[in-house]
């Protein structure tokens, strides 16, 4: 039986192999995704982001268990940064999700960011689609909330959960300013620690200042992920947000935006490949750099020439 059909049937070996092919940018992966595309769009995508060590994986583990109790299946993609120097990575999110490994209705995949400069890679988007097509009801995407990944997750997920913890220090104001706009739900995890209530109040105040709020007022939920406290309520809130998205037309709007982003990125990727290929082929930099340096040419004219030659 072919890989695509096996993925549709939820075969874990096949799902895992196809994700690997997508990560390695194998041509078969694109072919398979083309075939699987009509099967996507059924899963509900939830992004979990927050600072390192804030309990994202522990929360995901507990949320997945609660959702499983409610009879739904779940895919999890846990993204961690790759070393920019060696390309290697230690992906340790599974440590917190050991019990889920043996659950038939759960599939967990760890991914390095590889070359994607902290953002979510094309492979991550492919992996989401593969899990979606394989029939998982929910797909969780865990990313460390620093820089581009935080912005990317909003563009990728239907619902974005932003995790905070007490004791982050003065930086928290700066961090919060950036995240207030992206969160659909705010979690203050490690509520067993001093200062949790203070974080809740601060978040609440920041939310009040946020002007671009639609009809959904993001709730702030306190949790102690390690002891499962607040998890049932958080799953309820997540589902409430899904209902809001579906009933308000916001889900369609977000998904349309996602598709246009995706197409734009695919185009950019192809154009970049074409241009870099062309430039290395012509040995372009070597030839013109001296002339630009000596002001015989300028970067603007050269850019015009290259764009004309390569793209038009």
């Amino acid at each position: 039986m072919d890989l695509v059909q096996q993925v549709r049937e939820g075969n874990k070996v096949a799902i895992a192999r196809l994700i690997t092919k997508a990560e390695n940018e194998a041509p078969e992966a694109t072919a398979a995704l083309r075939e699987l595309y009509p099967d996507t769009g059924r899963a509900y995508l939830i992004g979990i982001t927050g600072p390192p060590g804030s309990g994202k994986s522990t929360l995901t583990d507990k949320l997945v268990k609660e959702i499983r109790k409610r009879g739904k299946t779940v895919g999890v993609i846990a993204v961690d940064p790759s070393s920019p120097f060696t390309g290697g990575a230690i992906l340790g999110d599974r440590i917190r999700m050991s019990d889920l490994s043996l659950d038939d209705g759960v599939f967990i995949r760890s991914m390095g960011t590889r070359g994607s400069l902290g953002g979510l890679s094309k492979a991550t988007h492919d992996a989401i689609k593969i899990l979606d097509a394989a029939g998982f009801d929910y797909v969780f995407i865990e990313t460390v909330g620093v820089g581009q990944s935080e912005v990317d997750i909003v563009k990728t997920a239907d619902t974005t959960v932003v995790v905070s913890v007490p004791g982050l220090g003065d930086d928290i104001q700066a961090i919060k300013a950036g995240i207030m706009e992206i969160g659909d739900l705010f979690v203050v995890n490690k509520a067993d620690k001093d200062g949790a209530e203070k974080v809740v109040i601060e978040l609440g105040q920041m939310l009040e200042l946020n002007q671009n709020m639609g009809d959904w007022y993001p709730p702030i939920v306190k949790t102690i992920a390690s002891t499962n406290e607040g998890i049932v309520g958080l799953v309820d809130k997540i589902n409430e947000h899904l209902n809001y998205l579906a009933n308000s037309g916001e889900l369609i709007k977000r998904r349309k935006e996602r598709i246009s982003n995706e197409i734009l990125n695919l185009i950019l990727k192809r154009v970049t490949t074409k241009i870099t290929g062309k430039l290395s082929e012509e040995n372009f930099w070597e030839n013109e750099l001296d002339e630009i340096l000596n002001k015989l040419k300028n970067p603007y004219d050269v850019t015009d020439r290259v764009v004309d030659e390569v793209l038009l």
Partner: peptide, 21 residues
């Protein structure tokens, strides 16, 4: 790329993780 699974893993858990990863 190292997938680290932590302590006290059963052979069944190791194999499930190896397959999914």
């Amino acid at each position: 790329e190292v997938i680290y699974t932590g302590l006290r893993q059963t052979p069944e858990q190791i194999v499930a993780a190896a397959i999914q990863e």
